[in-house]
Deep mutational scan, measured.
Amino acid sequence: MADYSSLTVVQLKDLLTKRNLSVGGLKNELVQRLIKDDEESKGESEVSP
């Protein structure tokens, strides 16, 4: 898992935009949104054959 907390808000928003996720909120919220997306993506890849 990436260390999103070391990134700037601009970098976080860029990552969120690329994933089609909301870019609104405080830095901590942006980090949590990326972590949640990582976990959901990981779960999907494990279920797929």
Rank of each mutant, 00 (worst) to 15 (best):
M1C: 00
M1S: 12
M1Y: 00
M1A: 07
A2H: 12
A2Q: 14
A2G: 14
D3F: 11
Y4E: 00
Y4N: 01
Y4I: 06
S5G: 09
S5L: 09
S5N: 15
S5F: 12
S6P: 04
S6G: 08
L7F: 14
L7G: 02
T8E: 01
T8P: 08
T8Q: 05
T8K: 03
T8V: 01
V9A: 08
V10C: 15
Q11C: 04
L12E: 01
L12A: 02
L12K: 00
L12C: 04
L12H: 00
K13G: 03
K13V: 11
K13Y: 07
K13W: 04
K13N: 09
D14P: 00
L15C: 05
L15Y: 07
L16P: 00
T17K: 12
T17W: 08
K18E: 11
K18L: 08
K18N: 09
K18Q: 13
K18F: 06
R19A: 03
R19Q: 04
R19C: 01
N20L: 08
L21F: 02
L21Q: 08
L21P: 01
L21M: 05
L21V: 04
L21G: 03
S22E: 10
S22W: 07
S22N: 11
S22C: 13
V23Q: 10
V23M: 09
V23G: 10
V23A: 13
V23S: 11
V23R: 09
G24F: 14
G24L: 14
G24R: 13
G24K: 10
G24I: 13
G24S: 13
G25M: 02
G25P: 01
G25Y: 00
G25N: 04
L26N: 13
L26W: 10
K27P: 09
K27N: 01
K27Y: 07
K27I: 01
K27M: 03
N28H: 13
N28E: 06
E29F: 00
E29T: 09
E29M: 02
E29W: 00
L30G: 03
V31R: 07
V31M: 06
V31H: 04
Q32V: 06
Q32T: 11
Q32C: 12
Q32E: 07
R33E: 02
R33T: 02
R33F: 00
L34W: 00
L34T: 02
I35H: 08
I35P: 02
K36Q: 10
D37Y: 14
D37C: 05
D37W: 09
D37V: 04
D37Q: 06
D37F: 12
D38F: 03
D38R: 05
D38Q: 05
D38P: 01
E39K: 06
E39R: 14
E40F: 06
E40P: 13
E40L: 12
E40T: 13
S41R: 12
S41T: 07
K42T: 06
K42V: 09
K42L: 13
K42H: 09
G43R: 14
E44R: 14
E44H: 05
E44L: 11
E44M: 15
E44S: 13
E44I: 12
E44T: 12
E44A: 12
S45W: 06
S45A: 13
E46R: 09
E46P: 13
E46S: 10
V47F: 08
V47C: 10
V47T: 07
V47S: 14
S48G: 07
S48K: 08
P49R: 10
P49A: 08
P49L: 09
